[in-house]
Nucleic acid binder design. Structure first.
Ligand SMILES: [Mn+2]
Ligand SMILES: [Mn+2]
Ligand SMILES: [Zn+2]
Ligand SMILES: [Zn+2]
Lengths: 141, 141
DNA sequence: ATTGTTATTGATAAAACTTGCAATAAGGAA
DNA sequence: TTCCTTATTGCAAGTTTTATCAATAACAAT
């Protein structure tokens, strides 16, 4: 079964509908891996769907996050960006230059255990953004 | 030396100035501990400084973050809130009800070590927000 | 295919946040 | 105190994000 059909069924199972808007935005995030801003996504999706509004882009992104198909992340500027949901990972962003690096979730596994023990919260996958100083910016101070 | 005088000197040392706006906002965050939205802060500070604009509140908050006197945090809604810089800590927010709990930084110390080793980034204090499901919301599903 | 239900969209307005610039005032120096 | 430099503010305009609501279209049932 194709990826699109699978996602369509997932949504229908939950009483939601697949639409060209949702399909297009998913396709864009699937193809162009990485983090993308709502404005960027709107620009790209508009090529396929001329009348598409920014309102719908924001709503669709929220919807897809709620349904676990994409993940939100803080960008260096503090704004939200989005990426297709893939393996569980996190990021460190350099406070100074904005550069970033990816962190495997396995590194956080132990912490998550402890957080659950200490807080009673169930720690679900959450695509955390840490901040720090990259090597280049460390030496250039 | 009073707290305000100390902060004033800190800023002057760096070529910046203490102003009624900055002083008032610091005082507000100092007295009302916890996380506060820009709108909330503007409302409170306006009582002391009638003409105060939202623009200045946003700019002041950014400035105070840059100078390490306050910390930003993601609220449950995703928007930024601010609190006076105090002991190094983090938060877990419940995805479902928005409730939150505080986490001591000591719990993350070990992780930060590993992150530095793996990434080469210098991990500075960063007031991280994790997301999960609180006990109440876990049982009510 | 046709119909009916209602989730979803686009249009519009509002709220939240940012930027550019001239007027103001903090605070160092005389 | 007074003067001078320039960091900081308020104002006005712009951008980003959210809320409301009537029109549309997905899709299940006929
Ligand atoms: Mn990512
Ligand atoms: Mn906090
Ligand atoms: Zn850097
Ligand atoms: Zn909860």
């Amino acid at each position: 079964m194709t990826c699109t059909m699978h996602r369509t069924q997932e949504l229908r199972k939950r009483g939601f509908r697949m639409t060209p808007q949702r399909q297009t935005i998913l396709q864009i995030l699937h193809d162009a891996s990485g983090h993308h801003s709502p404005a960027d996504i709107h620009a790209r999706a508009s090529l396929n769907i001329p009348g598409l509004t920014e309102t719908t882009v924001y709503r669709t992104l929220d919807f897809l996050v709620q349904n676990g198909m994409i993940n939100p992340a803080q960008s260096a500027s503090g704004h939200l960006v989005y990426e297709i949901a893939r393996h569980n990972h996190h990021h460190i962003i350099c406070r100074s230059c904005g550069g970033s690096v990816e962190i495997e979730h396995t590194l956080l596994q132990e912490l998550y255990q402890q957080l659950e023990t200490h807080s009673g919260y169930l720690m679900t996958a959450s695509h955390v953004t840490f901040f720090g100083l990259c090597q280049v910016c460390q030496s250039s101070t």
